[in-house]
Amino acid sequence: MNNIPTSEFAVRRPPAVSVKTPRNPAQAGNGNQLMADSFSVYYGPFEAVKKVSCAFPVGEVTALIGPSGCGKSTFLRAINRMNDLIPSCHVKGLLYFGGKRIYGPKLDVTVLRRRIGMVFQKPNPFPKSIYDNVAYGPRLHASCSRRDLDERVETSLRKAALWDEVKDRLQANALGLSGGQQQRLCLARALAVNPEVLLMDEPTSALDPKATAAIEDLIDALRGAYTIIIVTHNMQQAARVSDLTAFLYEGSLIEVGATSQLFTNPKEKRTEDYITGRFG
């Protein structure tokens, strides 16, 4: 457990954030805050994310919206350094997690990724059994006993509301599940390593409406326990599940605010245009 309070960080380096204060900083003391300070991501010479500055309040659900190619997925993947895989990709500016620079030289990427979990657009369970999928993360990070592991798998599956459906066939191949079940399994897999932050990259775009509703219900249930950042194409979804919404356009952060405010009373003209469907 990281005990560095956010206030200490604020003293050391006050970031220029566009949201002045998290909505309820007091309640969010349990986790570590995620902050971007004029953070840019480049693909070669192309600047995909331009000088984004914002903070993601702990324990709340933040939605990233914007038209295709606006850099929201790139930004999301930059948070747990998944972009390291792309050779031409590099970053400028600062990104903090719990006061530590995510792109700092001594940061342990594996620990970072354990603490910032991710759920992908397409359900991507490993071609292993359901049990092995969920146990994959815990096995990596700690040598726990068989009993602990069983318990961890069960808890995670219960959190993902999948336990009742799969408890009789834990050893079955995960690829045999339906798309919605697979995505919930991926969620359970991410939860099994006890992350503080969950990144979701359009988690429902490959699913049917019923499975989408199930995932949305889950996000709702996880609110408060995890800081959740969700990229979505679907503005209704953003409105339904998120506390905060950030609008990105051509790599720049145009506006960020409480979801109810942003959807009903946007401050920026471009936000309004996008929300009312004039482009995008």
Binding site: N80, M82, L85, T110, V111, L112, R113, R114, R115, G117, M118, F120, K122, N124, P125, F126, P127, Y136, G137, L140, H141, C186, R189, A190, V193
Partner: peptide, 18 residues
């Protein structure tokens, strides 16, 4: 091997060798 598998493993905090 689909890239997704690799991403999923990395996102769970597995090292490259792992």
């Amino acid at each position: 091997v689909p890239r997704e598998y690799k991403e999923a493993a990395l996102a769970l905090g597995a090292g490259r060798w792992r």
